[in-house]
Computed example of a mutant assay.
Amino acid sequence: MRIIYCDSVLDNKIIEPDYEEEKKSAVNCGFNFSLISFEELTDGNIATALRFIKEPENKELGIYRGWMLTPNQYRNLYDGLLKKNIELINSPAEYQHCHYLPDSYEKIKSKTPKSNWTTELNTDTIIELVSNFGESPIIVKDFVKSEKHNWDEACFIPNASDSEKVKSVVDKFLELRGNSLNEGLVFRQFEELEFLTEHSKSGMPLTKEFRIFFANKRIVKVFNYWDEGEYGEVKPELDDFIEIAQNIDSKLFTMDVAKKKNGDWIIMELGDGQVAGLPDNADRNEFYNNLKENAL
Rank of each mutant, 00 (worst) to 15 (best):
P158V: 00
E22H: 07
A245T: 03
I157V: 07
E106T: 10
K84L: 15
D162S: 07
N122D: 15
I63S: 09
D162F: 03
D256M: 07
N281I: 12
K292R: 15
P17Q: 02
F195N: 03
P92F: 10
L196S: 07
E269H: 05
K13I: 10
Q274D: 13
G80A: 14
M268I: 13
S202Y: 09
E20G: 06
N58H: 13
E87P: 12
P113A: 01
A49K: 03
Y100R: 00
I138L: 08
H149S: 11
H199D: 10
L206G: 04
K165V: 01
K109E: 11
E22T: 05
Y231N: 10
W67R: 12
W226P: 02
T119N: 10
N150G: 01
E230N: 11
D227E: 14
V144M: 11
Y74L: 07
S37T: 10
E164T: 03
N28L: 04
E209M: 00
Q73D: 09
G263H: 11
V257M: 04
E39Q: 13
R177G: 08
D227Q: 13
P17E: 01
E39A: 14
P92M: 08
W265P: 05
L252R: 06
D280Y: 12
Y78Q: 06
N45T: 11
D264M: 00
T254N: 06
D280F: 13
Y19Q: 14
S161Q: 03
S161F: 00
F31N: 15
T119V: 05
L185N: 09
W226K: 04
G30L: 11
N281S: 14
K261G: 00
E243P: 00
I108C: 07
R2T: 15
S34D: 15
E21F: 12
N90D: 14
E164S: 06
F210T: 01
R75N: 13
I14D: 01
S168I: 02
T207C: 08
